[in-house]
C-alpha cells in the first residue's frame, strides 16, 4: 500500500467512524424518547416527519438557533473549554475499536479499525479518565453552586467507579492475555465470547459503564430534582447540546466497548459454517457488531426508564464496599483458574 493511499484510507475511515458516532448519538435521543414513551404507554415524538423521525434534526436546529448566554461572572475561556473537552473525549475513543475484520479491495487489505495500538484497553481507560475534566471545568467555570456540586459529584463518582472498572478489565486481560482490542475481538470466534468466561467481570463492567456515562440510576451529577440541571445548569444553546450529545456518544462508545470486550465484537456463532467470501463475512461482522451495540443502547434506555435514581451515599457504598471487593475477589479467582489451566 502506498503512503498516499494509506493516508486517504485512514482519513476516510476516521470520518466515517466520526459521522456514524454523531448520527447514532442523534438518533439515540429520538430512540430514548420513543422507548420512554413505549414504556409509559405514550406515543412519543410523532410530529416532525413520518413517525417523528425528523425530530433530532428539529432539535438540532433549535439548539443552534437558541440565544447563547455566557454568564458575566464566569471564566469565559474555561466555560467554552468544558463542553469542548466533553465532546472531544467522547469522539476519540472510537479510534481503537475494531469495527470489523478487514475488507479486501483492489488488491489491498483495509482493516476496519482506525488504529490497533497494543494497549487499546488502557487507551480507553485513559480517555474516560480525562473525560471528567469536561464536566469539572464546565461546572466550576459556571460560577454557580449547583453546577459546582454537580461537577464534584461527577468527578468523585467517576474516580470511584474507574477503580472497579479497571479491576474488571484486569480480570479480562488475565483471561485474554492481550491488551489489544483487535486481538481480543479475534479471540472470541464461535461461542468463545468472553462473557461466558467472565460473567462477574462483565456485570461489574456494566454497572461501572452506567456510572461512567452518568446514566440513570447513577445520574446524580445532573439530578434535576436536587441540582436544577447539575453541571450544565448555566449552559444554553449548542454548548448545552454538546454536553447532552457527548453523553449519547459515550453511551454508543461504551456499548461498542462492551460488545467488543465481552460479546464477541464482530463475531457471531455458526457464521463460520456458511463459508462466505471474506468481504461478505467482514460486512456481516460489522452488521452483527452494530446489532449488539444497538441492543446495549436499548439496554441503557431500558434501565433508565425502569430503575429510579440512587442516593449519593448509596452510590458510594455500592462502588467502594461492594463492587471493588467483588472485583478484587474476581481477579483472584481468574488468576487462580488461569494458573491452573496454563500450568
Amino acid at each position: 500500500m502506498t503512503f498516499s493511499l494509506f493516508i486517504i484510507y485512514k482519513i476516510v475511515l476516521v470520518v466515517v467512524v466520526f459521522l456514524i458516532s454523531l448520527v447514532i448519538a442523534m438518533y439515540s435521543t429520538y430512540a430514548e424518547r420513543k422507548v420512554a414513551a413505549f414504556m409509559q404507554d405514550r406515543l412519543g415524538p410523532n410530529r416532525a416527519g413520518p413517525f417523528g423521525i425528523l425530530q433530532p434534526v428539529a432539535d438540532g436546529v433549535k439548539m443552534f438557533m437558541k440565544e447563547e448566554i455566557i454568564p458575566q461572572v464566569s471564566n469565559k475561556f474555561l466555560f467554552i473549554l468544558g463542553p469542548s473537552i466533553a465532546m472531544f473525549t467522547s469522539c476519540i475513543t472510537g479510534a481503537v475499536i475494531p469495527w470489523g475484520t478487514s475488507l479486501h479491495l483492489f488488491g489491498h487489505d483495509f482493516s476496519l479499525q482506525v488504529t490497533d495500538i497494543n494497549i487499546g484497553i488502557l487507551y480507553i481507560m485513559a480517555v474516560t479518565s480525562i473525560g471528567v475534566y469536561g464536566i469539572m471545568i464546565g461546572g466550576w467555570a459556571s460560577n454557580n453552586k449547583y453546577s459546582l456540586l454537580g461537577a464534584l459529584r461527577a468527578s468523585s463518582q467517576m474516580i470511584s467507579y474507574e477503580v472497579a472498572m479497571g479491576l474488571a478489565i484486569i480480570a479480562l486481560v488475565m483471561h485474554t492475555g492481550t491488551l489489544s482490542l483487535k486481538a481480543i475481538a479475534a479471540q472470541q470466534v464461535g461461542w468463545h465470547w468472553n462473557v461466558f468466561y467472565q460473567p462477574v467481570g462483565f456485570l461489574i463492567f456494566l454497572v461501572c459503564a452506567f456510572a461512567e456515562t452518568n446514566r440513570t440510576p447513577f445520574d446524580l451529577p445532573e439530578s434535576d430534582s436536587e441540582l436544577i440541571g447539575g453541571y450544565h445548569t448555566e449552559y444554553s444553546s449548542m454548548k448545552l447540546g454538546f454536553y447532552l450529545f457527548a453523553e449519547y456518544i459515550n453511551m454508543f462508545i461504551s456499548s461498542a466497548i462492551m460488545s467488543t470486550l465481552y460479546f464477541g465484537g464482530y463475531n457471531m456463532p455458526l457464521i463460520g459454517r456458511l463459508h462466505l467470501s471474506p468481504n461478505t463475512a467482514a460486512i456481516l461482522g460489522v452488521v452483527f457488531l452494530f446489532a449488539k451495540i444497538f441492543f446495549f443502547i436499548f439496554f441503557f434506555m431500558w434501565v433508565r426508564w425502569t430503575v429510579p435514581r440512587f442516593r449519593f451515599d448509596q452510590l458510594m457504598n455500592l462502588g467502594w464496599k461492594i463492587l471493588i471487593p467483588l472485583s478484587i475477589f474476581w481477579v483472584a479467582i481468574t488468576g487462580f483458574v488461569t494458573l491452573m489451566i496454563h500450568r
Binding site: 494497549i119 488502557l122 487507551y123 481507560m125 485513559a126 474516560t128 479518565s129 480525562i130 471528567v132 475534566y133 469539572m136 466550576w140 459546582l148 461537577a151 464534584l152 468527578s155 468523585s156 467517576m158 474516580i159 474507574e162
Partner: peptide, 20 residues
C-alpha cells in the same frame, strides 16, 4: 498511557476537586 490514567486522570482530578 499509565502516566495519563494515574496523574492526569486521577491525581489531578483530586487536586482540582480539593481546590474547587
Amino acid at each position: 498511557i499509565v502516566n495519563i490514567i494515574v496523574y492526569a486522570g486521577a491525581i489531578m482530578v483530586l487536586f482540582l476537586f480539593v481546590v474547587m
